[in-house]
Design a protein around this nucleic acid. Sequence first.
DNA 1: GACATAGTGCAATCCGGTTGCATTTTCGGA
DNA 2: TCCGAAAATGCAACCGGATTGCACTATGTC
Lengths: 159, 159
Amino acid sequence: MTKGTQAVDLLDDAGIRPTKARALVLAAIMEAGRPLSHPALAALLPELDRVTVFRSLKALKASGLLHGIQGLDGLLRYVANPASRKGCPGKHPHFLCLECGAMTCLPEQRMPHVRVPEGSEVVGKQFLVYGLCPLCSAKNQKSGNPADLATRKSASAEK
Amino acid sequence: MTKGTQAVDLLDDAGIRPTKARALVLAAIMEAGRPLSHPALAALLPELDRVTVFRSLKALKASGLLHGIQGLDGLLRYVANPASRKGCPGKHPHFLCLECGAMTCLPEQRMPHVRVPEGSEVVGKQFLVYGLCPLCSAKNQKSGNPADLATRKSASAEK
DNA sequence: GACATAGTGCAATCCGGTTGCATTTTCGGA
DNA sequence: TCCGAAAATGCAACCGGATTGCACTATGTC
């Protein structure tokens, strides 16, 4: 289990207890390589209680190993922070597929600057681009389904 | 009730039945002048059932009078679309105060362009800037409270 | 190895969103 | 003005994700 031990190292480095649950959660997220919601993770790790998954996510996030992105569906998704960018979330936009619910990072792009009202204090930003991923776009093209994408509840498979 | 009748006109124009509930909901949102969540609206309009509020919001959104923005807390908030921009949501960023939960529009700014993976289809974008609003920032300055802003659950009053 | 502390699992709760269904309102036509 | 179809509303109930309390277990220290 290379990934697992690697995850344990990261936990150690981050200064939190390297427990089995946290290692599994972190490994799963890193392996996925894209933002995963709490339910998706819980499904991916049936050997863990969903509450444990939830609390592990909280701990990992607090320690700076993960950051969360809110989807259009109200589901919070988590991605691993690359070591170099630890503790600096919100540094790039994300793309959410309305069809399959999958979320991907657009890491090579910087967050645009925004002017805020005088006196405001900016803590972070979140830029979400939504639509159809290449796969679903292709699928939709064939089966001719120009439906109410923006309205539809993130339907199938992957959360 | 000037606001109310004005709302009725808007409903008529939008081509949906101008019912009391819809007029009240729309008037409340326009009066607020900033994005309100469904729970906030339900609290603001105790004479209406929360389901009715919910369905009115759906109808108003479908007719292009409103658009919704997802907050960091997973709560969907609604704002009135100015007549000129009807049916064109997602045209500007929003600011969310982590302290009081109030959300404001930053309408004078355009959505930045983002490159997406080949084959993707962009339906819309959502840009959320979060932090402290001028009021809360000032309050925090005094009472010295440099706490876990990003973690905190949108605490008090306004949703 | 023993102990204090932190993490885990389970059950239960909270809350926003959503649906089914019976009743009421709206609106076009008689 | 009245009538009936269609749409909207209120109520109760349900669903699913988030969160908490508490007893039990694993972790790390001395």
